[in-house]
């Protein structure tokens, strides 16, 4: 184990996988000479050369589409999106092509590719650079959508993504890049997709979250404990496949659930999760499933407005109390 930041954990995963398999290559905007906007790819160009570390034009559809053509022939391309907001330009390539070819070819080809990069609210990045896309991609069969919340998961899940045979939308959170945590050194320690994890046990309420909102949820749980409310906190880790069994198990114990997401409320991940809880453990519920989400507006620029638009600890605490009828 080493203590690494989330950023370094991702960097480490890239290096280990590129060392391990010459078919792994990475492409993206300003990832080589510039060394990456978030410096995830610093040093890679020098180490692996321009054929494996490809500086592309600003052309997301081009990046993703060419990666698909590479993946079908056995390469394992990693596409870095400078931010996932830009990946909308490549939506046709991701959703109509990458997600579907393995299926409509009747399994004749695999699609081992990763599209990774940061998403979510930053600090005053305003409307076009602050969005969250897990529900958007989570809607489409044929994709894997990873939302790691810790450095260990960022490394272990990225390695799984690179070694897999399906396209992975790997959603990092820029606000987590500096977060430190214990990360396994073993280059073959990989984390599977579709395995949620209970990260804090509690008997009174189940808080379901992922990515940066997990950090928020854990902080809220700590404060709630001071008031005698013991929250069980679950990290979903991947949005697709979505493993809700631990959530159902937890709700059978706590009889109430709060789902926390940063993105907008309508048709979001929390809505899907809440509906699944209601479908599966309806008779266990003593209160409606609560959702904590961002406000339903494009991200404003002004700092005070921005802070009003995203969820905070106190929103989680208030939702927990509503679920407990203690408001």
């Amino acid at each position: 184990m080493s203590e690494l930041t989330y950023r370094d954990a991702i960097h480490r995963a890239l290096v280990e996988e590129m060392d391990r398999d010459p078919n792994v290559l990475i492409m993206g905007e300003d990832i080589g000479v510039y060394e990456g906007t978030f410096r995830i790819t610093a040093g890679l160009l020098k180490k692996y050369g321009a054929n494996r570390v490809i500086d592309t034009p600003i052309a997301e559809a081009g990046m993703v589409g060419t990666a698909i053509g590479m993946a079908m022939l056995g390469l394992r391309p990693i596409v870095e999106m400078m931010t996932f907001n830009f990946a909308l330009v490549a939506a046709d390539q991701i959703l109509n092509h990458a997600a579907k070819i393995r299926y409509f070819s009747g399994g004749q080809v695999d699609m081992p590719m990763v599209i990774r990069g940061p998403q979510g609210a930053g600090v005053q990045l305003s409307a076009q650079h602050s969005q969250s896309f897990e529900a958007f991609y989570g809607h489409f069969p044929g994709l894997i959508v990873a939302t790691p919340a810790t450095p260990a998961d960022a490394k272990g899940m990225l390695k799984s993504a690179i070694r897999g045979k399906d396209p992975v939308i790997f959603l990092e959170n820029a606000a987590l890049y500096g977060m430190k945590g214990e990360v396994p050194d073993d280059p073959d320690a990989v984390e599977p997709f579709g395995v949620s994890r209970v990260v804090r046990e509690g008997a009174h309420v189940t808080i379901v979250s992922y990515s940066r909102m997990l950090v928020l949820s854990l902080a809220a749980a700590a404060k709630l404990a001071e008031e005698g409310i013991e929250a069980e906190v679950i990290d979903l880790r991947t949005i697709r496949p979505l493993d809700l069994d631990p959530v159902y198990q937890s709700v059978r114990k706590t009889h109430r659930a709060v789902v926390v997401q940063e993105q907008w409320k309508p048709f979001g991940a929390a809505g899907e999760i809440a509906a699944s809880i209601t479908e599966t453990v309806f008779d266990e519920l003593d209160a409606p499933v609560e959702r904590v989400t961002g406000e339903d507006v494009p991200m404003p620029y002004a700092r005070n407005l921005e802070l009003l638009a995203v969820p905070h600890e106190e929103h989680v605490i208030a939702a927990v109390k509503r679920a407990l009828y203690r408001d």
Partner: peptide, 13 residues
């Protein structure tokens, strides 16, 4: 939509 794929495959070859 498939022109990008061909360019990528050419690169891979």
């Amino acid at each position: 939509g498939h022109l990008t794929l061909a360019a990528g495959s050419a690169y891979a070859l």
